[in-house]
Design a protein around this nucleic acid. Structure first.
Lengths: 149, 149
DNA sequence: AGAATAAGGTCAACCAGGTTGTCTACCTGA
DNA sequence: TCAGGTAGACAACCTGGTTGACCTTATTCT
């Protein structure tokens, strides 16, 4: 019996590969999963580079590199923190929000195909089950997103 | 609604972190997930370095590095291929099999805790659902194990 | 208030774990 | 038999992370 993590890794990769393939047909910048997760994070809340690093599960220096790329490509911009002169808020530009919308549609398509393959209810159970496990293990502060290889 | 891949990545990491933590308390070599997956693969079938690379989803050169490490640590050894003079079979040593047994127990513990947290049946559904999806997407030839970040 | 400590951001050096490219020895099919 | 493909080793390189030092600003403690 295969360990669950193998299934998780394989499924993650399978979905990611499909996403990436379809994205490449559009011909956008070489966005990696990390970039997408940053968009999604920034949609929810105002965040600094340090926040982003923590969310991704990498150091602040690594997060800074990612933010720099997104900045260069025009997906985000930095604005001064209102009260803390050291800090900067990273915020989505219109281009960033557009990308996120596009990606969300693509994910929805992929999940739709998944639901069709394994059943709507099974997918829902997977979703709830994993979320519950994460809740159980980590409480409110979620683990990093980066899969450690 | 969070995309499923985020849940997969987070769960994979959460489980992997726990596994790694407990493993470190024992004080073994710094084995990474890839090493474990190689053990498991070698238990099933005789395999060459190229086979291993394909299974992991990396190039044969990357696989060769991993095999070298395992060889240095005494977990595997290479023996000549019976018919193909170019090739070598990589096989588990006793130490390798012992590790695998130990790791399996540890995984079983972790999955037991997971089952306790989210329910036996939910875990079973997750397992079946993911396996079915992989089957649907890739047919018999499974995708690489390495999560692409 | 002032000193010690912590935190955000940046720079630079380094490293791990991959990749691509090349070469040799061997295998296989027309 | 010979053309093309494959296993494996070696080397150069790249990417995406880490560690460590530093400056500046915040916060906490006395």
């Amino acid at each position: 019996m295969e360990p669950v993590p193998m299934l998780l890794a394989m499924t993650y990769r399978a979905m990611g590969d499909q996403f990436h393939d379809r994205l490449r047909q559009i011909g956008l910048e070489p966005l990696r999963p990390a970039h997408g997760y940053v968009f999604r994070f920034l949609k929810e809340k105002r965040a600094t580079t340090v926040d982003i690093g923590q969310h991704l599960g990498v150091t602040k220096q690594a997060a800074a590199k990612i933010v720099n790329e997104l900045d260069d490509w025009g997906y985000v911009l930095r604005e001064p923190h209102p009260t803390d002169k050291r800090a900067q808020y990273v915020t989505l530009t219109t281009k960033g929000r557009d990308y996120l919308k596009f990606a969300d549609n693509l994910w929805a398509d992929l999940e739709g195909e998944m639901a069709e393959a394994i059943g709507e209810d099974t997918l829902a159970t997977i979703r709830r089950g994993l979320a519950a496990y994460l809740q159980h293990v980590h409480g409110e502060d979620q683990p990093g997103l980066r899969p450690v290889w």
